[in-house]
Write a protein that binds this DNA or RNA. Structure first.
Lengths: 189, 189
DNA sequence: TAGGTTTTTTGATTTTTGTCAAAATAAATA
DNA sequence: TATTTATTTTGACAAAAATCAAAAAACCTA
């Protein structure tokens, strides 16, 4: 039984016919730690549900990796910009642990959206959830002090601390590695 | 002729029947400069298309107003979080110039979504666009220097500079007023 | 236009964060 | 387990941004 079915059912009731079509459309992908899901220049042709594992997206700014997102189980992984606009991405997405994905090709997804109007409801709701999440991330980035941003991360993404080295988390929180380390030793007390 | 019709048609072809239903569902609202569209504690019951004018959303952090968004003509104004989750908002949304809105009540919108499956496509695409926009904002907030953030604003939101005082723009860009002023005098040269 | 209010700029100083370097710790691998 | 490699912490100092204060400029409006 694929994860995506449960995932959809939580959002909206689905017909047997649609369930079958959904299952036929899925590709399972397994990524090993370090494997890339996406690289700059590519168009994101897949949107995938993370069933197990963790990923990280980042871009390069003057040689340096700026982490833009961590993806955990139940997250949808793709380059939002690239997938929706059909333009090449400028971001890397890479697995930080072994990861299993249930993937939809862009064309398959469009096909499903055309054939099953109820799927629009589901995709719309997923997009809405994504957007709410995105607003919360912006809210946190606007917190001015490094310590506040770290505390927020601790509260909301604590599982990431188990799987990602601090250098990734530092750039995600818009601070450098040493600052993060100092903030952590302060928060510890 | 209402603005929303043109707006939808650009996204997806719409039937005459749907067009009529759409027009019946709109409330026009006029806000004067300083009027509030939303205040903390309220649930955002409306999502509106800005036809003319500008608005600003912000929240209070220790007495201080932190601007989270500027809305210009053709933007959709609501509290994303509140409208989608039906929870009370923690943000203010206020008009910074005289503003005209074409508004949908949440219930009307759900009703339209149920009656006209094609409307799901449109709302989905608007949400997608919003999300792409949101990702770009995050990208900019992660730019580390105050100058970079201001230059980005200058490029992408220059019309806001005509209508909003700098103190609003400063908090939007996560810097204080004096820093913004200094960055501006530096950029001028 | 004069007087008041708001907005913007400038200056001096403090605080926060970044940078560079090196040490300490943890993890990986032969 | 010893050795290498990666990660995290700490220190000294530099740079960026915040803070506090005040002046200058822009804008109402009586």
């Amino acid at each position: 039984m694929q994860h995506i079915i449960e995932y959809c059912k939580l959002i909206y009731p689905i017909s047997k016919k649609f369930e079958e079509a959904l299952l036929e459309s899925i590709n399972i992908k397994i990524l090993q730690s370090g494997d890339f899901f996406l690289k700059p220049g590519m168009v994101a042709n897949y949107a995938c549900l993370v069933t197990t594992g963790f990923l990280r997206s980042y871009y390069l700014k003057d040689e340096e990796e700026i982490t833009t997102k961590f993806l955990a189980p139940d997250a949808v992984v793709t380059s939002i910009y690239s997938f929706y606009t059909r333009q090449p991405t400028n971001e890397f997405i890479t697995a930080i642990t072994e990861t299993e994905l249930e993937c939809f090709h862009y064309n398959k997804l469009q096909d499903l959206l055309n054939r099953f109007p109820e799927f629009n409801v589901i995709v719309r709701k997923i997009t809405e959830q994504y957007l709410v999440f995105s607003e919360i991330e912006i809210f946190n980035l606007r917190k001015q002090s490094a310590e506040e941003r770290y505390r927020f991360f601790l509260k909301h993404h604590s599982q990431i601390l188990q799987v990602a080295p601090l250098k990734y988390i530092a750039s995600y929180l818009s601070m450098n590695l040493e600052t993060l380390s100092r903030v952590r030793s302060k928060v510890r007390q």
